[in-house]
Design a protein around this nucleic acid. Structure first.
Lengths: 123, 123
DNA sequence: TCACATTTTGACAATCATTTTCGTTTTCGC
DNA sequence: GCGAAAACGAAAATGATTGTCAAAATGTGA
């Protein structure tokens, strides 16, 4: 609906990597948009709530977002230099996580898994 | 060396779960210590730098720490209610992560993996 | 034990990402 | 076109974490 939210989604889609709210805000302003920082945060919140973008936290706690090709469960192989990411899947890991949970009496098991490295271009 | 750092390590060791710096500060003060918040942060920084405690980020970006039994690479099964954690290992996952990285031309591959659920006691 | 250098500490201020607040502007249904 | 509801944005508020700096603790050699 909202043009603003679309602008944020668009900006995110143009990148293959994870971007922070501040990054996106800077990009949009640089492109001439009059968007406010608050709106960027609101858009990202909405987009992640609806599962349209993936979120993860950098080591220093900053939230970074990515518009992924698929909305189904997957993980990422992220370049620690340029933050470019590749979507990856690991069926075996999914099973392992659930098994581990069951083994220790945990219910409602979920997991977070991200793989980091330096991509070919950045090496 | 430092009594203060030991106090922080001690406070952390008394818990099986992950605790935030603010939590530990509150605990220590409640126990009558005159320790300052800055010192708690410094102690945790030093302890994590030396690999004596594990750190992870909550969904809202807060850093939480845990004194683990082993300093070797491992993951955690964390209760999302009481934050109690169990150390777990997954050799297959380690291999999978490296393979995935190699497959896409990434070097220096590392990964983060945490499993969440509700522990038996909290169910 | 004493004088001095070094390290540790803690109160307080400063950062910085993120959230709230709140008045204004747009968008929509009718 | 008209009023309610949703979206905006600027500025203030939050809250965790870090930086500053002077005081206190500790170590060292004479």
């Amino acid at each position: 609906m909202s043009t603003r939210r679309d602008a944020v989604r668009q900006a995110l889609t143009e990148s293959t990597g994870f971007r922070s709210a501040q990054d996106l805000y800077a990009d949009l302003r640089a492109d001439g948009s009059k968007i406010g920082l608050t709106t960027v945060y609101r858009a990202l919140q909405a987009l992640s709530d609806s599962g349209q973008v993936d979120v993860l936290r950098t080591d220093d706690g900053e939230a970074v977002y990515r518009a992924c090709d698929t909305e189904s469960h997957h993980h990422h192989l992220v370049c620690r230099v340029c933050s470019t990411a590749v979507e990856i899947e690991g069926p075996a890991v999914e099973r392992w996580a659930v098994e581990m949970g069951a083994k220790h009496g945990f219910t409602g098991v979920t997991h977070t898994l991200e793989v980091f490295g330096t991509c070919a271009r950045c090496s």
